[in-house]
Design a protein around this nucleic acid. Structure first.
Lengths: 340, 340
DNA sequence: GACCACTACGAAAACGTTTTCGTGTTGACA
DNA sequence: TGTCAACACGAAAACGTTTTCGTAGTGGTC
């Protein structure tokens, strides 16, 4: 096992001081051309690489971004990470990813650990449990310590920081209006219970679209799924005998369960009933029929989040600049679960 | 912006030396009960947390595992990460994830950066490009530096390190035998070109199963997909007029394209033709018909990889212990693309 | 010869820890 | 009174860098 080369070792080997070595490698004019060349040659030959940890300690910068997300086994979040990574790497940062598993405690612990020097700033999408609890002390703490924080997707209004969101309401409205345009009038909604902010917002978009289209709002056409694990059966029984001509679901799972349920009732999608989902994942693309859906542009969100964070990290003055909230536009992806 | 509390600040505030503070916080018997309590109370009050970077430098340990994978937007890899994270966190490690995007260069760069002190060891699945190139200098280098390396999934035989694999050959054999058991004789194979090791191994399993079942091997029933992006049309034309009674596909995408193609030919799955895939992703679960497939137990692989790595990291003697190769058993998940 | 300005380098502090070793102060004991 | 151990603490080195400042040596100028 080869020992890693350090400045000290080079110095000893070449019989100069540590400072000389350091300066030579950084091309300081203080060092004569001769010694500089000698040192650089030696360093190159033995493949010297500065130790990141020592640099971090010295510079009080880790060049690392901490990302905390609710789950990793989740297509949308991975696209966001992908966007973060690309921008981060371009700018010489690397990325530590932690998952909260939607647990408040794990979110807090992860943030605390990363905040103890491992990370210069955070990109975060909060856990469901955190939203329910309404306890945000871990967020305010890192902000008070001067660590920049960018929230995305599931953001918290009360917290003062940069945010990247999609306009869930507008996206949902877009979806429902599309259904209206295709001639639908009895449009069902399959959503989540209200404390999940996106569920709430998308529900609002549904309502807005109906209002603007002068379609009466009918409580009976709305299902708020209680338990994700049993959503399939909940949806199946909800869809019975409602005589809808369309359904808008707030995620792709609900959408395909809806399609499945309709097909079991002998209805054809999109001929008899049309379906739109939210989130453009693997499932939406490959399912048969493939799903018309709202694309959240996760990669773009990640990229913007990283850009915003790095801007705050690198620009000293940026500290006093007001916080931004960037809204990423949603896109409507037309596929085969709606009429062409 | 509050300054972070350090030992030095506490020392100054309480008018003792830095060493006293350090010892008191670590409950050293050297320090009198009185001062100890005083210091601990102060530290707690102002929420002192030791700086991880300083600790890393001092201990020459980062308590961090570097994970390098080809892609992050990929269900299987995320399950592996999930397993790694769970075990790592349990044992007080955190995880840095980098993606190579299947690029050799990016893989090399990522490893070099992480090896410069950011990480104690690596868990790696190599990029496709690396497999093609056959250039493994970055791997041998980190190993020579004494950093433990655990490879998973796509491993490289020539490299001497711990490995976690599934028995691709056996898994594939299992799948094909299942088809044989269901009465199939003309079984097609949809695989990748040979330099992707898993494609090769799974192809071997297919051949083994046929041999053992005394079914003649027919070159015409094998498709090696050249271009993933056009796999759908490749598969569609391949499947034309081959009169198969079953297909084994080496991943879930190929499997559903096969189903799609059959359905377009007016064949019913599983009644007329049965299909088995590999990798149990979202798609396999939700597709209609849901896919019978081989489960790779990604989470388990990740967990084992993390355990193996941490064992090497924590056990000084383990350094000389021989390298292990752990084979994770594949499981057959029966769903609706084969006959019940 | 006195003064000055360069040049080329080294010493040391700093980042925040831990740990080894040294030392001043007690009190006990002969 | 002198010796010694125990106690409680501090100084300093170390991890690997960067950077500020100090300085020995050289050569030129008057």
């Amino acid at each position: 096992m080869k020992k890693r080369l350090t400045l000290k070792l080079i110095a000893k080997e070449l019989d100069v001081s540590i400072s000389t070595v350091s300066k030579a490698l950084r091309d300081s004019a203080e060092i004569s051309e001769d010694t500089r060349q000698k040192i650089k040659a030696f360093a190159k030959l033995y493949n010297y690489k500065p130790n990141n940890i020592a640099l971090s300690l010295k510079n009080r910068k880790t060049k690392t971004i901490g990302v905390i997300i609710p789950e990793i086994v989740h297509h949308y979040f991975t696209t966001v990470i992908s966007g973060i990574e690309q921008v981060a790497n371009e700018k010489g940062y690397h990325v530590i990813i932690c998952t909260s598993n939607n647990s408040f405690d794990k979110e807090v612990i992860n943030m605390e650990i990363l905040a103890n020097g491992s990370t210069d700033g955070f990109i975060l999408s909060v856990a469901k449990e955190t939203q329910q609890k309404g306890d945000y002390h871990h967020l305010t703490e890192v902000i008070e310590q001067g660590m920049p924080l960018v929230m995305f997707d599931r953001v918290i209004d009360e917290i003062n920081c940069d945010k990247i969101i999609i306009d869930d309401t507008l996206g949902a409205k877009k979806a429902v209006k599309h259904l209206v345009d295709k001639g639908c009038r009895r449009i069902g909604l399959i959503t989540t219970i209200d404390y999940v902010s996106v569920g709430k917002l998308r529900t609002q978009g549904y309502i807005d679209a109906l209002n603007e289209s002068n379609i009466a709002f009918d409580e009976n056409l709305i299902l708020k799924v209680e338990d994700f694990d049993h959503s399939e059966s909940e949806i199946q029984s909800f869809l019975n005998n409602k005589h809808m001509d369309a359904v808008f679901a707030v995620n792709e799972h609900f959408a395909i369960y809806a399609i499945k349920a309709f097909q079991e009732q002998g209805l054809k999608v999109p001929e008899d009933v049309q379906v739109i989902g939210f989130t453009d994942g693997e499932l939406s693309k490959r399912f048969i029929p493939s799903l018309t859906t709202i694309n959240q542009h996760g990669e773009e969100m990640g990229a913007q989040a990283a850009r915003l964070l790095i801007k705050k990290l690198e620009n000293e003055d940026a500290e006093d600049e007001p916080f931004e909230t960037i809204i990423i536009e949603t896109g409507l992806v037309e596929r085969n679960s709606t009429k062409g």
